[in-house]
Amino acid sequence: MTILAWNCRGLRSALAVRTLADEVQAKDPSLIFVVETKTGESRMKGIRNKLEYTQGITVPSDGRSGGLAMMWKEGSNIRFRSCSNSHIDVEVHENSASNPWRATGFYGHPDAGKRFISWQLLENLKNQYFMPWIVFGDFNEITQSNEKIGWLDRDANQMEEFRETILGVMGGGAQRTKVRLDCMVAPEGWMRLFPEARVRHVAMSISDHCMLMLTLERQQPQKRGNKRFFFKAMWTRDERCKEIVEEAWEPGWAEVELGIGDRIKRCQENLQAWNWKEFGHVYRVLKQKKEMLQQLEC
């Protein structure tokens, strides 16, 4: 099982939605939590349908600020508990043989003077009911000054309040990632349930916030199979694309008996050959650039 959490800084643009869709397609998460959507229920419903994560909870933004969304696929045994402008709380029931656990997406108040309200909310959530629990999202605070690089120094009292909250809510054995503003925290009870759980910070080119990726089991290497053909949207921006399709689709006199399946196959082959010649390994280059960005973020 995989969980993604990301402060996307808005899902109003097609680029932001496409970036999220690419990550979802690549990682196939069971649960997605998005912070600062800056949009309402209607648009988030459209995004959920595009991602094919049709179930979930949306907390609409206040104008052009805030907004939360938790999404999962139809058929998943995930039960909604509560929400506010700062959190979405659900229960995860993987199967009848495993214990249910809590997953809370969290957004710390952006106003430092009101952040104590967020810490009070965490304490209230802890006391609502008891089961293994993990909290993830953008806390808008760090526990120590060496967890940030650059910009203004953090207030020592603010960091101390956050440390006390984490210790009080999660207990002395709270496990954390290499904490930045975006992090995941869990007490020992949850860690015992998922001893192989791992968290990665994934650098995102369109946001200054990394995406959090939590995997509950050690991932097994996948066997490489034949690659599926995908039509690339970028091809349509080149005038030659239409010509390639027409040339492949219209048979010559000697090929007049070509069926629909044969024509589609020839279109695929010609487009792939043209893509290699004109664009080369563009997606491999993008992957390499993302890896470089990831190394700079760490």
Rank of each mutant, 00 (worst) to 15 (best):
P195H: 02
F194G: 02
I134D: 02
P132G: 00
A156D: 09
A156G: 06
Y129H: 13
E141M: 04
V179D: 05
K148N: 09
T177N: 10
P195C: 02
E147F: 00
I166D: 04
R163G: 01
M191I: 06
L193S: 08
S145G: 08
N146R: 10
Q175S: 15
K148F: 04
Q128D: 12
T177C: 14
V169T: 11
W190I: 06
C183A: 10
F162K: 03
K178L: 07
R176L: 15
E141A: 05
G150M: 04
A197D: 01
R192Y: 05
R163C: 02
P132C: 06
L193R: 05
L167W: 08
C183D: 11
V169G: 00
V169M: 01
W151I: 06
E160K: 09
Y129S: 10
T165Y: 09
I142S: 00
E147C: 03
N140Q: 09
L152Y: 10
P132H: 04
A174T: 13
R180G: 14
I166F: 04
T177F: 12
R198V: 09
N157T: 14
V185H: 00
F194W: 15
I142E: 01
V179P: 09
R180K: 11
G172F: 07
R176C: 14
C183L: 07
Q144S: 13
T143D: 02
V179Y: 03
W151Y: 11
E160N: 08
D138N: 03
V135G: 07
I166Q: 02
V169Q: 02
G150S: 01
I166K: 02
V185C: 04
T177Q: 08
W151N: 15
R192K: 12
A174W: 14
R192S: 05
T143Q: 02
E188W: 08
S145P: 02
W133E: 03
V185A: 05
L167N: 12
V185K: 00
V169N: 02
L152D: 05
M159Y: 10
P187T: 00
K148L: 12
G171Y: 06
A156V: 15
W190R: 09
M159V: 09
E160R: 15
G150Q: 00
G173S: 13
N157L: 10
T177M: 12
V169D: 01
W151G: 07
F162N: 03
M159A: 06
E147Q: 15
R180I: 06
G173Q: 12
A186Q: 00
R163W: 02
R192W: 07
I134E: 05
A197N: 02
L193K: 11
D153T: 14
Q175V: 13
P187N: 05
Q128V: 13
A197S: 12
E161V: 09
T165L: 09
